[in-house]
Structures are given as structure tokens and as C-alpha cells.
């Protein structure tokens, strides 16, 4: 079978990913596997493969751990196994497990975009949204300008 990424070399590596219960598979040659997993550094913006790594190596579903979320009763081992939060507080209580998982899976851990009206009074949040867009669309001058603006506002707030 040929590599599904380059369509040229013979596939030597097989990947499987599970997104929201939808399982899909990929056959890759070693060069493409290297490129897709290594070439993106630690940024994790290769969703196809990173979600696979995310589920298996970041969450470590085999691990137990006796912690339990006091709000919803979610245990550490169940959280690792299901990759689901049981309530809003789980994101605090299991931050050490979920933050790296979110990072590999989403390539980011900082929200950009709309917020409920009651949260919108913060001008820094609005600027952060713009900064995210600027970086995503590779407008680095604009991004630098926004970053300075955010630093300035944050300095004023403190």
C-alpha cells in the first residue's frame, strides 16, 4: 500500500485516531511519518496525528491515580480513559492531565473568539482574540502590534 500522505513511497507505519468516537486510519511512509510528527516541533499543530498521540501518550489511559473531582465525582482513571471532563471544575481539578492533552489536541490552550456578554468587559480579551487571528493568518507585524498593546493594558491594570 502506498503512503496516504505523499502517495509515492510504500507505507510502513500505520496510525489510528479516534475523534469523538469516530475512528479513522492512516498509512504513512517513514519520511511522512517523521515529517508529520517531528516537523511540527512541540506546537502540536498536526491534528491528524497529534490527536492519536494525544489520546494514547498524553492521557495515559492505563494509569490510575486516586484523585476525584469533588463537584462531579469524576475519578482520575475514568478521566484518563474517557478523555471527558465531568463538570467545569474538572478542568481545574485535573489541569495537570488535561492541559497537555488540550495542547496536543488543539495546538493551543488560549481561547480566542467570542465570550458571553457578561465576560466581555475586558478589553484585553478582545485584543487577544485579534492577536490569535493575526498569528493564524501570518500577519506578524499586526501580531507584534497587538502584543505590545496587550502588554500595555495589562501593565495599567496591575
Amino acid at each position: 500500500m502506498l503512503c496516504q500522505h505523499c502517495g509515492v513511497n510504500e507505507a510502513t507505519t500505520y496510525y489510528k485516531q479516534n475523534i469523538n468516537g469516530q475512528v479513522s486510519e492512516m498509512h504513512l511512509c517513514s519520511a511522512c511519518a517523521q515529517k508529520l510528527t517531528g516537523g511540527f516541533g512541540g506546537m502540536g499543530f498536526s491534528p491528524t496525528l497529534q490527536s492519536f498521540w494525544g489520546d494514547s501518550t498524553v492521557l495515559q489511559p492505563g494509569l490510575g491515580g486516586g484523585r476525584r473531582c469533588r463537584t462531579c465525582g469524576m475519578t482520575e482513571s475514568e478521566l484518563r480513559r474517557t478523555a471527558r471532563a465531568g463538570c467545569a471544575d474538572c478542568y481545574q481539578n485535573f489541569a495537570d492531565i488535561l492541559t497537555p492533552y488540550i495542547h496536543t489536541r488543539q495546538g493551543s490552550t488560549a481561547h480566542v473568539g467570542s465570550a458571553p456578554a457578561q465576560e466581555q468587559s475586558d478589553p484585553v480579551a478582545a485584543l487577544r482574540a485579534k492577536l490569535g487571528d493575526a498569528i493564524a493568518s501570518e500577519q506578524y507585524e499586526e501580531a507584534a502590534r497587538l502584543r505590545d498593546e496587550i502588554r500595555r493594558l495589562e501593565g495599567e491594570q496591575q
Partner: peptide
């Protein structure tokens, strides 16, 4: 917007709208 004006939602400044599965966090979109 209509729902949010009347209902308090799980929202975190850093993670955005909170969802059961981390793959929907942020915009929830």
C-alpha cells in the same frame, strides 16, 4: 447571544466555553 443574555454558562477566560470533551473547548464551534 439570546441564550447567553439569559443563562449563565460555563466559561473560562483561558479555555473559553467549557465542554465535556476537550476537543470542543474554546469556541465550541
Amino acid at each position: 447571544g439570546l441564550l447567553e443574555s439569559q443563562i449563565q454558562l460555563d466559561y473560562d477566560e483561558k479555555l473559553g466555553y467549557l465542554t465535556a470533551c476537550p476537543s470542543n473547548l474554546g469556541t465550541g464551534l
